[in-house]
Design a protein around this nucleic acid. Structure first.
Ligand code: DCP
Ligand code: MG
Ligand code: MG
Length: 1094
DNA sequence: ATCCTCCCCTAC
DNA sequence: TAAGGTAGGGGAGGAT
């Protein structure tokens, strides 16, 4: 489908990715896998492996990955799909991610039918989901009725179209036809493979599938994930940019006639943020709710739960928070009783805010403030699309973007404004308009219209009528289109007789009748009101706002004509006008213009196309686009404050001269960084507004709140802010936590869940190709005084937080290592499993996972150290990894022979010398890899000189080890300490011969009472090790004590007389030997004798 | 001084 | 019923 903004976007994205595919394929020396040739997937919701991983897999194996679902999407990948989503999806090819994974494993495209998420029979049944409807509340039932009406309407529309005898939609298309009321199935749901019923739903964290179901439904998880995704996206765009900014060109073009030149201010920062984001998106296909108080939430009003929980004490938690922060915001009359919903409101409309409702509030509270509050469900896919639209649109003007979240960013506008000599307000108006109309509906409509027009062109002139009335095969949006068109007529108050063409008039009238039957008046009134309100608000804004007349090719004379018409300059042949025009009188323009173009459109094919574009964008502008607000200032604080003031759907430039006085009245709580706690503390000082805050000296504030916080407060209340925008973003941590549904009855359950969480963190690390050296476990523990039953169903209640971390010498990302660490840490924290209310795993000290890291160690260093270890290691290296390392080093065939130890024997023990690696190849390597090679090489040389060169035979280790060990008898403690980390990092499991060498060494030191060296080596081993988990405690000073107590009491009896350090050394040594014993019984004796000795 | 660990806080 | 995640800044207090 050509044309269409969205289509172009999608096409562009795909282009990018096909380029990626090509390039990557190149880099990988033609990984000529074409397993997924012809397959285009779209990943819906949470999957394992993640969408990102699947994208990579598709790229590697000749498939295509779609960011959004398009007509070209051949398969939808999902692990879990709520019924309401199912209904929106046309294809029956909803496939589990295992299909991809297994196909790769098998090396061929497996039959997807073996991997269908739902069996076709179940799918059909789910489409009629009667059982859910019958258990719905009254309100839901009403919605269900409305839903039915919609379905009937859609069908009616089809019938008309079918009468024309063209392109009757297939059965399949009908099933998936757009349905705008997911409210029918209001509750997000777990996958139900067999529709057996609710008991399959994962209720708490002990049940299988809980984690994925939770993440699927967690709004906070989604906004977080989308935030990081968009940060990555900006980075990606910045990397790809070729210096062209199509948006600037458009802006420049329309500025041609505008004489006003704006002197670029020193620096202009823009903050832009979507208005009540989730609500706006939700209202796109619920125009009837516009103008009403609306909230996005999981809750459906105050429904009495089926089974009441015992021991709930909501007052306890309410009082706790009230007391803690002296928070009187929830007066007693708003106190929730047992049946009030504690579902949180993610976002609420501005009408709802007038009643005092806020984002994050409980639905129960909100309903008390506004009983008529309308609730709508989440639409995470929708948010994602609009987010990308937002970022794409801004990126057409500049890439000096700091992504903040899915609906918000900072932009350094200095260069755009300078290059286009535009003022902030002009730029803001234009940009916001583009953002508003850039969203899917308009795009799809436009796409449809242009497609239709094109078709008509290809046919003949007078077939226009047919074109208009023909259902295009390629789009499933036609009936929406006609519905919207009809709505536009109604909304714009166009009298039917304004439409001159009788056929079209008849059609639209008929359509209108059939599709807006009994409630048509209601609907009309509703839309009228919105229309009038829109106009009113536009008029309010006149003075600093502009209305952008959106037409495509601005140089086109026809478009100029249209623009002239719309703004009421009725001279079609008049001089070209700027397309950014200040509109003073809009009241009647829209309906006249629309009527005019309807008629115009019927006269010629040419103008028909323009007409539709206009109608659609006008429709969007007034009715369906999500609006953004923007603030401008000379730093991020000012921009932020300006946005706040400008909301909703507005913009404001806080000029430098106005800043200082503007700030004075601002409540300190409104400053970024001042939340509940800091606000409370400031209130304690009698500080309420920035003016109050200004009275304090910087040093006073720093003494009170700390150096940084103090100086930030000092600056911010004066409108100053020296934090620069941060464009290049790099992650500092990766984590996963769940503080909902955690209800364990024993350690076993906790362990199982921790493992799942570790798996999750691991996959997130791998997704971004990172490893981390520090692993932190965080537990929420029911506070001593808190009741066992929480106020919120499955919530965490009042908790204490405890964390414990473990630093490794080697960065890890594999689930096993992480799981081992956190399980160990869990034991240290010794929290009763039934008091756990939340669990989190965080990985920090991140390092980029370059394929070469570690592998280089192995290939370049290993031959030096341990033949048998090398061999076993190589055995563990997967084919893919080998491929990666080989290609990443870009070794030629002959070199591979030397470097790759995957040879029948391990006799190539000579150290790797420079000559083994072609210097030219080395020079061609990326800088970081080259350095690693060089570094590794140096280490090799130095360690060669220090260590006895080891020659290994093919004999089994048990025979060899005695002689081997003796070779190491001269090792110094320093040598051992150098070797240990490398050894540990290169293998998953210790080789017996290596263990023997170390044990031997340690035994000798024990015999010599050389406790200091033992301590050094053991600590080194422990801190290097991700395998020898139980001894990690040593790197953590706090845990030394634990080791000391538990171990010495058990095994050393009265050795408490020993100096702590000594004890620890001994304990450590014992633990090491104990461990070694596990893999080699021979050493049990050594351990025991050591014990006896002390 | 500067680091590290264990928190707390904030924002979306 | 309900889906209270996640990344980053930063402070206190101790180790180096
Ligand atoms: N406690 C919160 C706050 C926000 N969000 C989600 C829903 C919001 O729509 C989105 C963006 O947050 P904003 O702070 O930008 O709030 P809105 O966009 O809803 O409103 P505003 O017009 O004030 O920006 O993040 C959420 O789920 N829970
Ligand atoms: Mg917002
Ligand atoms: Mg926001």
């Amino acid at each position: 489908m050509e044309g269409g903004y969205m289509a172009a976007k999608v096409a562009k994205l795909q282009e990018q990715f096909s380029e990626d595919t090509e390039r990557e394929g190149h880099e990988r020396e033609k990984s000529d896998s074409r397993i997924f040739c012809g397959v285009s997937i779209f990943v819906n919701g949470y999957t394992v492996p993640s969408a990102d991983m699947l994208k990579r897999i598709m790229m590697q194996h000749g498939g295509i990955y779609h960011h959004y679902q398009t007509e070209k999407t051949t398969h939808i990948i999902a692990s879990n799909l709520p019924n309401c989503k199912m209904k929106l999806i046309r294809t029956l090819k909803i496939v589990k991610p295992d299909w991809i994974v297994d196909s790769v494993k098998e090396g061929r495209l497996l039959d997807y039918r073996q991997y269908l998420l739902y069996t076709p029979r179940a799918q059909t049944r789910l489409d009629f989901g009667q059982s859910e409807v019958s258990t719905c509340s009254e309100k839901q039932r009403k919605e269900a009725v409305e839903q039915d009406n919609v379905s009937i309407r859609e069908e009616a529309g089809k019938n008309i179209l079918s009468e024309q005898g063209k392109d009757v939609p297939s059965e399949e298309e009908k099933i998936g036809e757009h349905v705008s009321c997911p409210e029918t199935f209001p509750m997000p749901q777990a996958a139900r493979e067999d529709g057996k019923g609710k008991h399959l739903t994962a209720r708490n964290a002990t049940e299988p599938g809980f984690l994925s179901e939770f993440y699927n439904n967690s709004r906070l998880h989604h906004i977080s994930t989308m935030g990081t995704l968009l940060k990555q996206y900006v980075t990606q765009l910045r990397g790809k940019n070729d210096g062209s900014f199509p948006g600037r060109l458009r802006l420049q073009k329309l500025k041609n006639d505008d004489r006003s030149q704006h002197i670029a201010a020193n620096r202009v920062i823009m903050h832009i943020d979507m208005d009540c984001f989730f609500v706006s998106v939700g209202l796109k296909d619920r125009p009837h709710l516009r103008g009403l108080p609306v909230a996005v939430t999981h809750g459906r009003g105050n429904v009495t739960p089926l089974h009441q929980r015992k021991g709930v004490n909501r007052a306890f938690e309410a009082n706790y928070y009230r007391q803690k922060l002296q928070d009187d915001s929830t007066p007693a009359e708003l106190e929730l009783n047992e049946t009030d919903s504690m579902s949180e409101i993610a976002s609420c409309s501005y009408e709802a805010r007038k009643c005092g409702i806020k984002n994050g509030m409980f639905l129960g509270n909100a309903l008390k403030l506004c009983p008529s509050l309308q609730t709508i469900p989440y639409d995470f896919e929708g948010y994602k699309q609009v987010s990308y639209c937002l970022y794409d649109t801004v990126a057409e003007f500049t890439l000096e973007i700091e992504a903040v979240s899915c609906d918000e960013m900072y932009v350094d506008c200095t260069s755009v404004l300078r290059d286009t000599s535009t003022s902030p307000m002009q730029f803001g108006a234009y940009l916001r308009q583009e953002i508003q109309i850039s969203q899917e509906k308009k795009c799809h409509l436009k796409q449809h219209v242009q497609g239709a027009a094109h078709k008509a062109k290809a046919q003949q002139k007078n077939q226009l009528q047919q074109t208009l009335l023909t259902q295009p095969t390629s789009s499933n949006l036609s009936s929406n289109f006609y519905a919207d068109l009809t709505r536009a007529f109604v909304a714009a108050n166009i009298p039917w007789n304004a439409i001159e063409n009788p056929v079209l008039r008849q059609f639209l009238q008929k359509y209108c009748k059939q599709n807006i039957p009994s409630e048509s008046t209601l609907r009309k009134n509703c839309l009228d009101r919105i229309y009038n309100e829109t106009l009113a608000s536009i008029r309010e804004d006149i003075g600093d706002s502009y209305i952008w007349v959106s037409v495509d090719e601005t140089s086109d004379p026809m478009n100029r004509y249209i623009a002239n018409m719309v703004v009421g300059k009725l001279s079609p042949d008049g001089p070209s006008i700027p397309h950014l025009v200040c509109v003073k009188e809009l009241s009647k323009v829209n309906s006249q213009a629309i009527a005019y173009f309807v008629n115009k459109g019927l006269q010629s094919l040419y103008s028909e196309q323009k007409l539709m574009v206009l109608v659609c964008s006008s429709l969007c502008k007034d009715k369906t686009g999500c609006t953004a607000s923007a603030g401008f200032g000379s730093n991020r604080l000012q921009a932020r404050m300006a946005t706040k003031k400008a909301k909703p759907n507005g913009q404001l430039y806080l000029e430098p001269s106005a800043v200082a006085s503007y700030m004075l009245d601002i409540p300190v709580q409104d400053l970024p960084g001042v939340g509940r706690t800091l606000g409370f503390r400031l209130r304690g000082l009698g500080v309420h507004t920035c003016l109050d805050l200004k009275q304090y000296s910087q040093s006073h504030l720093q003494k009170e709140f700390g150096a940084k916080t103090g100086s930030a407060l000092y600056q911010h209340c004066r409108g100053e802010d020296n934090r620069p925008l941060n464009f290049g973003h790099q992650r500092k941590s990766v984590s996963a936590e769940v503080n909902y549904g955690i209800r364990f009855t024993n350690q076993q359950e906790a362990t199982i869940f921790l493992r799942q969480l570790a798996e999750e963190v691991s996959s997130r690390l791998k997704e971004v190709k990172m490893r981390g050296r520090c692993i932190t476990l965080k537990l929420l523990v029911r506070a001593k005084e808190a009741p066992v039953e929480t106020a919120k169903y499955l919530g965490h209640g009042v908790c204490d937080q405890v964390t414990r971390s473990s630093s490794l010498a080697v960065a890890v990302s594999d689930a096993e290592s992480i799981a081992r660490e956190v399980l160990f840490l869990t034991r240290q924290l010794s929290v009763k499993p039934d008091d756990m209310r939340g669990i989190g795993i965080q990985v920090t000290h991140l390092e980029r996972e370059s394929a070469a890291t570690g592998m280089l160690d192995n290939f370049l260093l290993r031959p030096n150290l341990q033949g048998c270890a090398v061999k076993s290691h190589v055995k563990n290296v997967s084919q893919k990894e080998k491929h990666d390392i080989v290609t990443s080093m870009k070794t030629t065939e002959s070199e591979k022979g030397k470097v790759n130890p995957d040879q029948p024997s391990c006799s190539t023990e000579q150290p790797v010398h420079m000559g083994n690696i072609d210097r030219e190849v080395l020079a061609a390597l990326p800088k970081d890899i080259r350095q690693e090679v060089l570094q590794a090489y140096q280490i090799t040389e130095s360690s060669t000189s220090m260590l006895p060169v080891k020659v290994t035979s093919e004999n089994p280790p048990s025979v060899v080890e005695q002689e081997d060990v003796s070779l190491y008898s001269t090792m110094t403690v320093h040598e051992v300490r150098m070797l240990v980390p490398k050894w540990v990092s290169s293998e998953n499991l210790p080789q017996p011969c290596d263990v023997n060498i170390l044990a031997d060494y340690l035994e000798r030191q024990v015999a010599n009472h050389n406790l200091d060296d033992i301590s050094l080596v053991v600590r080194c081993l422990y801190s290097s090790s991700s395998s020898f988990t139980q001894v990690h405690s040593i790197s953590n000073p706090r845990l030394l004590e634990t080791v000391h107590c538990t171990r010495t009491q058990d095994f050393w009896g009265q050795s408490t007389a020993l100096e702590l350090k000594t004890s620890n050394c001994v304990a450590s040594a014992w633990m090491l030997l104990k461990f070694i014993h596990m893999s080699n019984p021979r050493l049990l004796d050594a351990a025991d004798s050591l014990a006896v000795q002390y």
